[in-house]
């Protein structure tokens, strides 16, 4: 009798506790909820770069992809662009690709920006926001490190230094 009551109470409290814990967990992750989780496969996409070449993420399997979302008005994006460009030169022959996805600005603005910083890596424009939506992009800059199997290794928001960019590229080198 005594034991039965203890078991009953324990079970009921556990069920209630689990419900509360889940609710709290869900509430605190709802803003941070990442559509693309680390360790999972990065959603595929196709976008056209400024020279008219199509870039499909899945075509880069076997190589690391440094996927950066940016806008010309975003100061930290602007700052890290030259660093990315330098490191791109270092790593492009080692199988690390840089894809810079602009968040839907005009061709003109993007071209002018790219000319100004003499950017060598391909820049694509996500005109209707489909790729941003698939990756759940909110604050800029946002960077995904994708390894040779197409899996997300790391997700970074905020500005990166040249040092960190270098270490990230090391990380996804096939």
């Amino acid at each position: 009798m005594k034991k039965q009551r203890l078991v009953m109470r324990t079970v009921i409290l556990l069920v209630l506790g689990a419900a509360v814990a889940y609710t709290l967990y869900a509430n605190f992750t709802k803003d941070k909820i990442q559509k693309v989780a680390v360790g999972e496969k990065a959603p595929d996409f196709v976008l056209t770069d400024m020279d008219g070449n199509k870039h499909k993420l899945s075509d880069y399997e076997g190589q690391g992809v440094f996927l950066n979302f940016w806008g010309t008005w975003c100061k930290p994006c602007e700052k890290e662009m030259p660093y990315m460009n330098n490191q791109y030169e270092q790593f492009k022959d080692e199988g690390v690709h840089v894809l810079a996805v602009n968040v839907g600005e005009t061709d003109l603005a993007v071209n002018k920006f790219s000319e100004r910083y003499d950017l060598a890596f391909p820049i694509v424009i996500d005109k209707d926001g489909q790729v941003q939506s698939a990756y759940g992009i909110n604050p800029l800059p946002a960077t995904f490190l994708i390894d040779k199997d197409g899996k997300v290794v790391k997700y970074i928001t905020g500005e990166m230094t040249e040092e960190t960019i270098k270490s990230y590229m090391e990380q996804i080198k096939p």
């Binding site: 959603p43 595929d44 996409f45 196709v46 996500d126 489909q130």
Partner: peptide, 10 residues
């Protein structure tokens, strides 16, 4: 409504 499967960006 979208018809068929397309990859994001397509």
């Amino acid at each position: 409504k979208k018809q068929g499967d397309t990859v994001a960006g397509e």
